[in-house]
Every structure is written in C-alpha cells, then in structure tokens.
C-alpha cells in the first residue's frame, strides 16, 4: 500500500512539474501585459513597471537581437528561462506564487487563494455531498425497479440532468428558486446559506451521472450468486442492498470521484459568475482576460493539485475497498 502511494505521489509530482511548465509557456505566448492599456502613466514609470515584472526586454536580450541577429521571440527565451527558474525557486523555498499585478493590486496570489478558496471549497463540497446523496439512492432505486416506469423515469431525469448544463440550470435556479425563498439572496455572498442554491445547480449534472453509474453497478452486483444467497437466507431487501450490494456497486462511482471534482471545478467557473460568489473560479476567469500571469499560473497549479489529490484519493479508496485489487498489489 505504501509503495503504491509513493509511486502514485511520484507520478503526480511529475505531472505537476509538467503542468507548471506548460502553463508557464502558454501564459507567455499571449502578447501583451496587464499594464498595456494604462493611459495616464508616464513612459518612464511604464518602463520601470515592465522591467520590474519582466515584461521588458533585458539588456542581454537586446544584445542577442542586435549582435547575433536572433529573432526577438527567440531572444526572449533568455528572459523567460530566468523567470522560470525564479518561479520554481520562489515556489519551493518561499511558498510564494508571485504578486497580483493590476487586478487586486497589493495582494499576493497566495493571499488571493487563501481568501477565495473557502468559498469555492464549501461550494464544491456542498455540490459533491448533494450529488452523492441524491445520485446514489436514485441509482439504487432505479436498479431495484429495473425496466419499470420508475427506472425509466429516473433515468430520463438523469439524462436531462446530464444534458442541461450548469449555465442553464444556474440562471434558472437563480430566478425560479432563489427569488421565492425568503432567506436566500440571489446573488452575492454573506452567509453559508447563500451557497445552497448555487451548490444544487452545480451538483445537478454530477448527481445525474452518479445515478447512472450506481444503477449500472447495482445491476451487475444484483445478478451475482452471493446476492441470491442473501435473498434465500430471507434477508430483507434493504439489508441486502446496504450490507452486500453497495460496496461492489459503488466501485464505478468511486472511480468517478476524480473526474467529478474536475467537473465541479469547471462548473464553479460558471456558477460563481452567475451567483457572484467571490471564489477562485471568478478570479481565474478575470485573471485570464486581464493577462494576470501570476494569478493564472498560481490558480492553475492549485487546481491541478486539487484534481490530482481527488484522483489519488479515489484510486486508494478503490484499492482499499476492493480485495481483488489489493491481492494484485501484493503479488
């Protein structure tokens, strides 16, 4: 088990290094910088700003362009290489993700994450708990009443839930539900109760998917011999489901936890902008449009860590729950 965890951690580390590098390159491929639209700034101040944040060509770079006749894009690699090393250095030794440039000026990216992560976390956890709490029972019921109208009805709702995207259900929930409930605000964020409606809209698709996966898993398990034995022993159906079926039937759901986290993160970009929740998703979108390279790099890394953590968690849970996988590992 420990060797499995270590090897998976090693893999994740490699992937994270790749992620940071790819994002670093992509962010710098886009021309322009956050300060390019400033009008009232005198030229020499602008120069200083560009120099400070590494948007200006360095003297080495100019030398390379003039003396060696390198194209500017190639010469810029010199500056970017230095920035890359610096970024890793700050990340590893100072836990510093860099500063916010124009947006949220004066904050560091670390502080920005610290401030906005709780909202996104609560929102995501609400959505996840809701998705599992609704999806699993629905899937179980659909499987127990296979090929009846209960089954078809549930699966039709699930299919709709998958196909109605967050950006449709979000605004609809906002107007149709949140305006009707007195103690919930439709936009903005003052208490945890304001996150309930957004979380439901966010978890809808995941809940539907979980219901479909649970139904499939249950159908497979229900046809196994040991379930027939349990039935023959005269156990009530509820006992059979809870004690004997769920562990096996939920394997597909558990392997879906990683992708589900990714889906919820993606959805939170949308939901946070619809309900105006000051979470990380909003900051990321604003960071991309505003050329905020450090915010984008930092949040991409943070999201990467979360999604990889969720994947690792679901893999380990599968091994822990499934004796067959455990045996394979020992061999």
């Amino acid at each position: 088990m420990i060797s499995l965890i270590l090897s998976r951690l090693g893999q994740s580390l490699l992937t994270l290094i790749a992620l940071v590098s790819v994002v670093f390159v992509l962010v710098r491929m886009k021309p322009g910088n956050p300060f390019q639209d400033e009008k009232a700034v005198p030229a020499h101040v602008m120069e200083k700003i560009n120099e400070k944040y590494g948007f200006a060509q360095t003297s080495t770079e100019l030398y390379l362009i003039e003396e060696w006749n390198l194209p500017p894009k190639v010469a810029a690699l010199e500056r970017y290489g230095e920035q890359y090393v610096k970024y890793w250095f700050n990340l590893i030794f100072r836990f510093d993700l860099g500063p916010c440039l124009k947006l949220y000026q004066g904050f560091s990216v670390g502080e920005l994450i610290e401030q906005s992560f709780p909202y996104s976390l609560i929102l995501g956890l609400f959505a996840m708990v809701y998705a599992l709490g609704v999806g699993i029972p629905l899937g179980v019921v659909a499987a127990l009443y296979k090929n009846t109208w209960i089954d078809y009805g549930t699966m039709l709702i699930a299919m709709l839930g998958i196909c109605i995207p967050v950006f449709v259900s979000g605004p609809l929930f906002q107007v149709l539900v949140a305006t009707k409930v007195p103690f919930i605000r439709t936009a903005g964020m003052e208490g945890v109760s304001d996150l309930i409606i957004p979380a439901i809209a966010l978890g809808l698709g995941v809940a539907a998917y979980v219901a479909r996966l649970t139904r499939g898993g249950m159908l497979e398990v229900l046809s196994l011999d040991y379930v027939r034995t349990a039935k023959a022993k005269g156990l009530p159906m509820s006992q059979i489901v809870i004690r004997h079926c769920l562990r096996g039937a939920l394997m597909p759901v558990i392997s879906y936890i990683g992708p589900a986290f990714a889906a919820i993160t993606t959805g939170s970009f949308v939901i946070e902008s619809v309900f105006q929740i000051p979470g990380m998703g909003q900051h990321f979108v604003k960071g991309v449009t505003g050329n905020e390279i450090f915010i984008v790099q930092g949040l991409a890394l943070f999201y990467g860590v979360i999604i990889m953590g969720a994947n690792l968690f679901s893999d380990l849970l599968q091994v822990w729950l499934n004796p067959q996988l455990r045996k394979d590992l020992v061999k």
Binding site: L19, A262, A300, Y303, G304, M308, N311
Partner: peptide, 13 residues
C-alpha cells in the same frame, strides 16, 4: 499524465 491535467484550464490558456 496528460489526463491528470485540468483539461478546461489548459484549453482556456
């Protein structure tokens, strides 16, 4: 390895 990366973020960037 690529599958473990956050898909939508990379698409956006």
């Amino acid at each position: 390895g690529m599958m473990a990366l956050p898909f939508l973020i990379l698409v956006i960037l």
